[in-house]
Design a protein around this nucleic acid. Sequence first.
DNA 1: CAGATTTCTTAACCAAGTCAATTCACAGAC
DNA 2: GTCTGTGAATTGACTTGGTTAAGAAATCTG
Lengths: 214, 214
Amino acid sequence: MNAPMGLRERKKQRTRETISDTAITLFLEHGFDQVSVVDIAAVAEVSKPTLFKYFPTKEDLVVHRFADHQTVSSTVVAERPPGVSAIDALHQHFLDGLAARDPITGLNDDEDVLAFHHLVYSTPSLVARVSQYLAQAEEALAQALVDALDSDREITAALLAGQVIATERILASVNWQRIVAGRSADEVYPEAVADADHAYALLRQGLAGAAAQK
Amino acid sequence: MNAPMGLRERKKQRTRETISDTAITLFLEHGFDQVSVVDIAAVAEVSKPTLFKYFPTKEDLVVHRFADHQTVSSTVVAERPPGVSAIDALHQHFLDGLAARDPITGLNDDEDVLAFHHLVYSTPSLVARVSQYLAQAEEALAQALVDALDSDREITAALLAGQVIATERILASVNWQRIVAGRSADEVYPEAVADADHAYALLRQGLAGAAAQK
DNA sequence: CAGATTTCTTAACCAAGTCAATTCACAGAC
DNA sequence: GTCTGTGAATTGACTTGGTTAAGAAATCTG
């Protein structure tokens, strides 16, 4: 059951994938800054303006893969089962991501995923673009939380959204560091779950229940 | 008591200020994207390479003013008086900022500050650069918190740092929105203090003490 | 003032991204 | 199957941010 699209649509889809795959392959081989967009266009057999019609910037050739994640957290909150709190839904969703070795959690030791991660996080302009996506995710989550939280203060939703996005970013970063250190995802998994539980406890109970202070 | 610098140093200082002031003036007049660096260089009476020797990117002509803030939070934690917890020190420092109408808190209705703020936050590439500074501030704060927190988990410091930076960013944004809506800093001040207290309570006690959930 | 050094300018260059005009290829009607 | 209109691709030129090399100018040391 294919989607009902003509030859034109299918060709556009294929061209888009060809361009992106070509770009990522070249970037992984020689580094983001060492490959120019004309190089990519040449290998992908399109012209430069065509390339920029499919991807607005050079960075988007890589990070368009993060585009979907913009709305994941807000969707998790908006479509959580009745009786489940927003924070529980987000917590559970992150645990599910860990169990499924979702690359977004940092807990994935697949060679290609590692290489892609390294490409992104070793290139400042790509990091910058990713954090733009995170900012959008935060905004969407804040919106979803306004409805989900029974607070008299609207600012609570924005604050919690900021904290959740920061938390998941840091959890992923810690997992990723362990994987880069050479350990397997299966080996790290229990620690990753413990960290996630700890982090979400911090959101629920705050510092009061998590760390004595000097 | 002037710093002991020769004519060369003084001239460099003056040139740097001239370039930045010229740039910001032109940006405020015509918009960031409508002014090219050669325009700026021409008005400031320097060559383009000289401009880029003083400021690595066009964005830095504006946001170099944020450079100092990179280390403020970490310094507050590292140099807090004995007997004061890290979170209390950060909380108090933010309250001091509000009382002093520090632009970084968003609670400042000075015409020039407003215009500058608007320039930055209405220009995507400037926003991106600012968030890079925030990321550095977060990293520095995480480092300072490793020593300040009496936690068995090192990840707690990173998580808290992320949450603090996100919190202060959002508090500033909310204050800024109220000022933009036409209200005076003095009028908004009590709400700003209440929000800050609320936000830091969220960090201390978490959602448990802040908001019932549907 | 003379010599060493740092800084500035000039001019050319590269890469990202845009634009206008033309050509190409698919879609639908006959 | 051919014609025709439309959306997409190409070409080539252009703008702008940012860099580099060589030489000229200004500052510092003595």
